[in-house]
Design a protein around this nucleic acid. Structure first.
Length: 269
DNA sequence: CTATCAATGCGTCAACGTGA
DNA sequence: TCACGTTGACGCATTGATAG
């Protein structure tokens, strides 16, 4: 069955690439002017290969298009507000990481730097508490500081979340406290360790650091791929609308040409 | 109902671009 | 030069349509 899947994917991916390429060719063909044909001979094969090897980002292409054509929307640098995650628990359904405490609670770290804590017995939103990253966006290597921001707390509490690890220890007391540490470390409970790259010595720590870095990179790339695909879809939509506009324009010009021909060369018979 | 096909989306890797 | 962002390519899973 593997060969079937492989063929399927091959066909699918090439088809996908072809459709985008066809669309771009179509736009270029419709909008093509004399100078483009003229320039074709100027570009040597080496330069063309350079151009083809790496295309500019969809954002860049589309923004250039938008500067040429007023009707073309720009791709925003950041996600628009409607796509951004509002500070609403119900919309935080896709966390990056989920940890489970020894008491059965779940902690989900979302992309926006928000942390959700849910009790297993509660149904959904009821048992949720929210934590906010104090340094989201620029996590220091080795650890991510989060700031405890539960509603009942009269003070704030900071602790560290080593990125790739899975154990969360919840302690009991007047105020809930949470500890997230590596499965392999033998630190006593209640001790929070801040790992900085400079303090890593043992091979185990180095391996953990490497794992952490890898998971961070994978996570970032995962998000980047999603964003890239979103931009690509937007870019394709833009090209399609441009094709439609140019086809209409082309049609009008042809009609105009025919009209002018009729005026300039009236039939003699 | 089941098998197959086609389309789509996702995660990952690798290569390249880019700014500090 | 290096770290990080971007994107093509690939493999895989899922889903809807369709033929038998």
């Amino acid at each position: 069955m593997w060969w079937h899947q492989h063929n399927l994917c091959f066909r699918h991916h090439t088809q996908e690439d072809c459709s985008l390429g066809d669309l771009e060719k179509k736009v270029a063909a419709i909008a093509e002017t004399d100078e483009s044909a003229e320039a074709e001979g100027v570009i040597d094969s080496h330069k063309r290969r350079e151009i083809l090897s790496r295309r500019p980002s969809y954002r860049k292409i589309l923004n250039e298009l938008s500067s040429d054509v007023p009707g073309v929307p720009k791709i925003e640098e950041e996600k628009s507000e409607e796509e951004g995650t509002p500070p609403n628990i119900a919309t935080m359904a896709v966390p990056t990481s989920i940890y489970q405490t020894s008491t059965g609670q779940y902690i989900a770290i979302a992309q926006g730097g928000t942390i959700q804590i849910s009790n297993p017995g509660s149904d959904g939103v009821q048992g949720l508490q929210t934590l906010t990253m104090t340094n989201s966006g620029a996590p220091p290597p080795g650890a991510t500081i989060v700031q405890y921001a539960a509603q009942s707390a009269d003070g704030t509490q900071q602790f560290f979340v080593p990125g790739s690890q899975v154990v969360v220890q919840a302690a009991t007391g007047d105020m809930p406290t949470y500890q997230i540490r590596t499965p392999t470390t033998a630190l006593p409970q209640g001790v929070v360790m801040a790992a900085s790259p400079g303090s890593l010595h043992s091979p185990q720590q180095l391996a953990e650091e490497a794992t952490r870095k890898r998971e961070l990179r994978l996570m970032k790339n995962r998000e980047a791929a999603k964003e890239c695909r979103r931009r690509k879809k937007e870019y394709v939509k833009c090209l399609e609308s441009r094709v439609a506009v140019l086809e209409v324009q082309n049609k009008k010009l042809i009609e105009e040409l025919e009209t002018l021909k009729d005026i300039c060369s009236p039939k003699t018979d």
